[in-house]
């Protein structure tokens, strides 16, 4: 329990300046849900924290057909869970949000924080990957855009330079006939860290064949990862049971799970196969016809199918 100072910027510029001044001994916090737990267990010991909460204008979630969905750095996981735009257009992300902790943590935790914390088990991350999220990263030298899968470098490590801030996440507008789902595999229906999480998003052509498929896996590699092999197997195919089963097998092959207190490695790999199949089947079944919120909530946490 090391002491730290509390710094509160009221603009992005001020936040960047405080971070630059503090260097490695300072840490940015948003919802502080990861931060306070790590600090209490002695993992993080900054001299000061820069709290983003009071930087105005960053808590938005907006949608338009050109830019798609824009999520500000202070939008919380609960904001996402409650957003009609997200539920209707990005059901896999809504599922990731609804499967996330409990409401008290969702009301604090930010989506940007979930990304920057870069846990392989982050529940919004597979869906964000599957929707091709782009990240706006701002530093004292200006801003840059990075695709989300280039943001993750390792467990807890991102491509952000010291002093940089992730200010916005953008998800392109999905094609017409798109469906998606995220399923979290955990022993309980809430509050657990994912043992495995899988998001699938598929877009269908008018003839029902697969126009695009994106599958992302959580908690089975050092970072959340796309299952490119499985995706490739599906494009321009009809998404029948055999093809979906094959994609499940390829996804399972492509990951590199570890064993820990939650699960063994082989079981995790097998769950990747099962959840890939299930999320794909559901995505196909609901393409262009998003499920109700109640259905998303019931499906999002895999305690039993």
């Amino acid at each position: 329990m090391a002491r730290f100072d509390y710094l509160e910027p009221h603009s992005l510029d001020e936040a960047l300046r405080l971070l630059a001044e503090g260097g490695d001994n300072t840490r940015l916090v948003a919802g502080s849900t990861d931060f306070l737990v790590r600090w209490r267990t002695g993992v993080w010991r900054p001299d000061s924290v820069v709290c983003m909460q009071h930087v105005p204008g960053l808590d938005y979630i907006t949608w338009n057909p050109d830019d798609g969905l824009s999520i500000g750095a202070l939008a919380t996981v609960q904001d996402i869970e409650q957003s009609d735009e997200v539920r209707n257009r990005y059901p896999a992300l809504a599922a990731g949000a609804t499967a996330f902790a409990g409401v008290q943590v969702r009301n604090l935790a930010t989506v940007a924080g979930n990304i920057c914390n870069a846990s392989p088990a982050g529940d919004t991350l597979p869906a964000l990957l599957a929707y091709n999220a782009q990240c706006r990263i701002v530093g004292t030298g200006g801003e840059r855009w990075l695709p989300l899968d280039e943001v993750f470098v390792g467990p807890g490590r991102t491509a952000l330079e010291s002093g940089e801030i992730l200010t916005e996440i953008r998800l392109p507008a999905p094609a017409e006939n798109t469906g998606g789902l995220y399923i979290k595999h955990s022993p309980r229906g809430a509050m657990d860290i994912s043992a495995v999480g899988v998001a699938s998003v598929v877009s269908l052509n008018a003839d029902g064949a697969c126009a695009s498929a994106r599958i992302a896996l959580g908690a089975v590699a050092p970072t959340p990862v796309r299952a490119y092999g499985a995706e490739g197997r599906l494009v321009s195919q009809t998404l029948d049971a055999a093809n979906i089963a094959e994609a499940g097998r390829l996804a399972a092959q492509s990951c590199s799970p570890i064993a820990d207190v939650r699960s063994g490695a082989d079981y995790r790999r097998e769950m990747v196969r099962v959840l890939t199949e299930r999320t794909l089947s559901h995505a196909v079944a609901t393409a262009g016809n998003p499920p109700s919120y109640d259905d998303i909530r019931r499906l999002a946490v895999q305690t039993a199918w």
């Binding site: 022993p187 309980r188 229906g189 809430a190 509050m191 657990d192 860290i193 207190v261 939650r262 305690t303």
Partner: peptide, 25 residues
């Protein structure tokens, strides 16, 4: 409650890893 096979230490000393039932379950 899991124990390290080598030194007997509790491996999951938190409510995040020792999983008691929730209303939702």
């Amino acid at each position: 409650q899991q124990f390290d096979p080598d030194n007997g230490a509790v491996r999951n000393p938190s409510f995040a890893s020792y999983l008691m039932p929730l209303a939702i379950d």
